[in-house]
């Protein structure tokens, strides 16, 4: 059993480099105070639904945003997205799909499942930092989420 500080950003990313770059981008804009990195889909789901080793996490402490990679070990990003959007208590959580895939089929499927944004990771660092920052700013500071009851 672990105990956690309240988390408002969940980064689901199996590639530690990409995770680090994402966190760096968020930090540059002072957005990354309370984040958690899940390295695979199963861990992400356990975290979101306070299961397994995250059972003590206070589910009532709202996540503000989830950055979700699609290509993940164990449970795929699409499956994670499907479960979040299928559950009434989590379906209003903003989910930003962040992936290298430019495939049309992926984009369509993600939106069909209820993704709030779909962002293609640029190779270029500047563009990447810019993209993550802009998205983070939008969802964490501009967007007004609905009030959720536990």
């Amino acid at each position: 059993m672990k105990s956690f500080d309240p988390v408002d950003i969940l980064i689901v990313e199996d590639n530690p480099s990409d995770a680090e770059l994402t966190i760096r981008a968020l930090k540059k804009n002072n957005l990354a105070n309370h984040y958690f990195v899940a390295e695979n889909g199963e861990e992400a789901l356990d975290f979101i639904f306070s299961r397994g080793e995250f059972a003590v996490r206070d589910i009532s402490k709202d996540l503000k945003i989830i950055f979700l990679d699609l290509k993940l070990p164990k449970v795929s990003g699409m499956e994670v997205l499907r479960e979040i959007k299928a559950n009434p208590s989590t379906k209003t959580l903003p989910v930003v799909v962040v992936t290298s895939s430019k495939e049309d089929t992926d984009i369509k499927e993600a939106y069909a499942l209820g993704a709030n944004s779909y962002i293609v990771k640029p190779v270029d660092f500047d563009s990447f930092i810019h993209t993550i920052s802009t998205t983070g700013l939008y969802w964490l500071q501009l967007n007004v989420p609905p009030k959720m009851k536990a």
């Binding site: 590639n15 760096r24 290509k71 290298s100 895939s101 495939e103 990447f128």
Partner: peptide, 21 residues
């Protein structure tokens, strides 16, 4: 192709990003 599109880009991003860092 799918793997290429996804996996080949990630290290590139890391190379570029960490060089920048």
């Amino acid at each position: 192709s799918y793997s290429v599109s996804h996996d080949l880009r990630a290290p590139l991003r890391a190379i570029d990003g960490f060089t920048r860092i």
